[in-house]
Amino acid sequence: MGLVVGGVLDVGAADPWASVAGGAAGLIGLAVTLYAFLGPAPTAAAVTASGTRAVAAGGSIGAVSTGDGTSTTPPPPTTPGSPTRPASGPVTASGERSVAAGGDIGSVSAGDG
């Protein structure tokens, strides 16, 4: 807006308009920041496991074994400080021996050994 006024009128008249536009942009930025900090809290993702031996986790799963007489090899250790990804939506494992995670899955064995 300040540039338009400066282009149409003159640079001296654009200065107050640019000040007003900058102040308005600052107030809008402050309002958006306050909303981000004080706005509604994110809701937890729904985690559901339905089915024989089904496994569901809202975060990461290291090792899972759903079969008879099976074992899983544990995944390699994570680097300290490496972030785990939380679920961003619903996590559902529905079906026999199904496995679902909102984050990473290291190792899964769903068969019988």
Rank of each mutant, 00 (worst) to 15 (best):
A24L: 15
L9R: 15
A56Y: 03
L27A: 13
A100D: 00
S94T: 09
G102E: 00
A93V: 01
T92F: 01
T43K: 14
V55A: 08
T70K: 00
G95L: 04
V8P: 05
T92C: 01
D10C: 10
V11L: 14
G39P: 03
L3P: 07
T33C: 12
P90C: 02
G102L: 01
L9P: 04
G95D: 01
V99N: 00
G23E: 10
V108L: 04
A57D: 12
S98N: 03
G51N: 09
E96R: 07
A44D: 14
G111H: 04
G113H: 04
F37S: 13
L30M: 14
A110K: 00
L30R: 13
A57T: 10
A45N: 09
S98G: 03
R53G: 06
V64D: 02
T43F: 04
S107L: 02
P74M: 08
A36M: 09
A45G: 12
A21L: 11
T70R: 01
G67M: 05
S109Q: 04
Y35M: 14
R85G: 03
V5K: 05
V55T: 05
V55K: 05
G59M: 07
A21W: 03
V8T: 10
G39I: 09
P42W: 05
D68E: 13
A54N: 05
A87D: 01
L9S: 11
S19I: 11
G39R: 06
A13E: 09
A110N: 05
V47T: 13
A41K: 15
G102A: 02
T78E: 14
G23Q: 11
V4I: 15
T72I: 05
M1Q: 13
A63T: 11
R85K: 12
V91S: 04
L38G: 12
G111I: 05
F37Q: 15
L30Q: 09
G2Q: 09
G67Q: 01
G22W: 03
D10H: 13
A13N: 12
P40C: 08
V47N: 09
A63L: 07
V47K: 07
L3Q: 11
P86W: 05
A63S: 14
T73K: 06
G6E: 04
G39Y: 04
G103Q: 03
V108G: 00
G62L: 07
F37E: 10
G69F: 09
L27Y: 10
S98C: 06
A54T: 06
Y35W: 11
A101H: 02
S107D: 07
P77V: 08
S60D: 13
A54I: 08
P80N: 08
M1R: 12
V108P: 00
A54L: 10
G62Y: 03
T52V: 15
A31R: 14
G103V: 02
A44I: 10
S82T: 15
A36Y: 06
T70Q: 04
